[in-house]
């Protein structure tokens, strides 16, 4: 039992040089796992203590990440039974949508700083999208 916890592969990476608090790093990476379907809805996830040991991060930090994830509806924690990904099939697309919203907000804020109109901003987004599509097409084998 003992070794198993140590070797549990969580593929979550905590960086002490990342300026964000460790609990935010954990939250973000769990949300990514859920968004890409690596942790599907209803799936049991590591207990707070098991994840803390695997990441070599204090229990209280993981506990905080789990509490906030629960508040955001990403996971459910049952007392004495551990935690699972919220059994909600719409969760993954919603997480992506929220991420998109954050990026759009950021872009709009910088656009304002540069004095761009909403139409300028929309044009820029269309151009970027077109460029990405063209690049993907160019990479595909003929």
């Amino acid at each position: 039992m003992y070794t198993q916890y140590i070797q549990m592969d969580t593929s979550i990476v905590i960086s002490q040089s990342d300026g964000r608090p460790m609990y935010l790093q954990i939250m973000e990476q769990i949300k990514q796992k859920v968004a890409v379907g690596e942790w599907p809805p209803g799936e049991e996830i590591p207990s707070i203590r098991a994840l803390a040991v695997a990441l070599r991060v204090s229990v209280i930090t993981v506990k905080r990440a789990y509490l906030e994830l629960e508040r955001e509806g990403v996971i459910i924690t049952q007392h004495g039974k551990g935690s699972l990904v919220a059994p909600d099939p719409g969760l993954a697309p919603r997480l992506y949508d929220r991420e998109l919203e954050d990026h759009l907000e950021h872009a709009a804020r910088i656009g304002n700083l540069l004095g761009l109109t909403p139409d300028d901003l929309a044009d820029r987004l269309r151009d970027t999208s077109a460029r990405l599509t063209a690049e993907t097409l160019a990479k595909e084998p003929v």
Partner: peptide, 10 residues
């Protein structure tokens, strides 16, 4: 050492 300390806390 840090890993073993955390392992105690399981």
């Amino acid at each position: 050492v840090l890993a073993e300390l955390m392992a105690v806390l399981i």
